[in-house]
Write a protein that binds this DNA or RNA. Structure first.
Length: 371
DNA sequence: GCTATTTGACCGCG
DNA sequence: CGCGGTCAAATAGC
């Protein structure tokens, strides 16, 4: 059924779910000793989600002007602080050029001021000089390089990437890749803006990652890459993924280099700390970050914050990686929300109160549940 | 021929 | 005015 939904509808649903989830997370964070930065990220995410949802409503033609079909979001009435949207505007007025207004809002070639309002976050990805595998792998999205700059005081140039689907889907996500001066095995990846394109994220095959190309530029010869491929193949063999059903009936080999969405906005890339892959999972579920498939987060990073109940925090689950040894165990899940300060990994269905044979929708949407 | 990358030019901001 | 970020023509690769 959801298969018949339009892109706008899916985006709208996704954004609203995401906004609601972020609000819940924010509420949780308000009562805890979390950092102001974390709260800021959540607030930005909420604002971003509702802005997008509102724009989709405006974008979706007559629907937006027919409250009897699509109720106006309550959030609109109170306005969004700092939102560029004119909530009190008259999108349904006769002379309102909706598509033009949407283009204005969504056009990536926007003023730098508006661009500055896009959420921004940074991942640090370490490569291993020994294996070459632990370099920044594919983050699940496809990027196109549009520039490279020598940065004052930096040893290595900075590369600029934008989403491949920038023009076709007006996806404004960009990222910058900068090799660290201090530790050349570390790449600092700054993401800006959230993907609004319909890439499948971590489950969709993507061209070779730009980071790998970065590595290519600074490492001479391809010996490292050969080793990388071997190790990756070993890892794949140990990993199964089920992107459709969780009843164990349709487990397939993981089709592609893996990357788990793990930071507030980015991904954590798998590393073969254990060459036998997920089957060697310790079974140490929930509440810890000891997944052998995660890069260790640095003290200053907020990458791997763990939700007490990750499943409830996900608005939409794309992939559910499961342990080979224990089908009820979810190794990781990725969600559609690029703004959730997530949340990993290593939890079991049981722990989050879901029956092992819980009938997940095939499109990844979680049915509404009261946890 | 199409798509991605490279790279010098350009522009806006501080 | 210098720097970071982006553009766009040229080039490379398939």
């Amino acid at each position: 059924m959801e298969g018949g939904w339009s892109y706008e509808q899916k985006t709208l649903i996704s954004e609203l779910i995401q906004g609601a989830n972020l609000a819940k997370q924010l509420r949780a964070h308000l009562s805890s000793a979390s950092s102001a930065e974390t709260r800021e990220v959540l607030i930005n995410g909420i604002i971003n989600s509702f802005e997008k949802a509102l724009m989709v409503l405006k974008w979706s033609g007559p629907v937006a002007c027919q409250p009897q079909r699509v109720p106006a979001p309550a959030v609109g009435a109170s306005g969004i602080p700092g939102s560029p949207l004119s909530v009190n505007g008259s999108p349904c007025s006769d002379d309102f050029d909706r598509s033009a207004a949407v283009r204005e809002q969504f056009d990536c070639r926007d003023t730098s001021k508006k661009r500055k309002m896009l959420p921004k976050w940074t991942d640090q990805v370490r490569i291993s000089p020994d294996t070459g595998l632990e370099g920044p792998q594919d983050d699940g999205y496809s990027w196109r390089k549009y520039g490279q700059k020598d940065i004052l005081g930096a040893k290595y140039p900075r590369s600029y990437y934008r989403c491949t689907y920038r023009n076709t889907q007006n996806c404004c996500a960009t990222k910058q890749v900068q090799r660290s001066d201090d530790d050349h095995t570390v790449f600092e990846i700054t993401y800006r803006g959230k993907h609004t394109c319909l890439q499948g994220g971590p489950s969709t095959p993507a061209p070779p990652s730009p980071e790998k190309q970065e590595l290519k530029q600074v490492t001479h010869g391809n010996h490292q890459q050969d080793q990388s491929q071997d190790a990756l193949a070993r890892f794949r063999n140990g990993l199964r993924v089920d992107t459709e059903n969780l009843d164990g009936s349709n487990i397939t080999e993981m089709p592609r280099p893996f990357s788990f969405r793990s930071s507030s906005f980015g991904f954590v890339h798998g590393e073969t700390h254990s060459s036998s892959g997920l089957a060697n999972n310790t079974g140490n579920h929930g509440g810890n970050l000891s997944s052998p498939f995660l890069s260790p987060s640095t003290p200053e990073s907020n990458y791997f914050s763990l939700s007490p109940c990750p499943m409830t925090e996900f608005g939409q689950i794309h992939n559910r990686y499961r342990s080979e040894s224990d089908p009820a165990e979810i190794i990781s899940a990725t969600n559609s929300s690029a703004n959730s300060p997530i949340l990993d990994l290593d939890f079991s269905l049981e722990e989050v109160g879901i029956e092992p044979n819980f009938p997940f929708n095939t499109d990844g949407f979680l049915p509404k549940l009261d946890y």
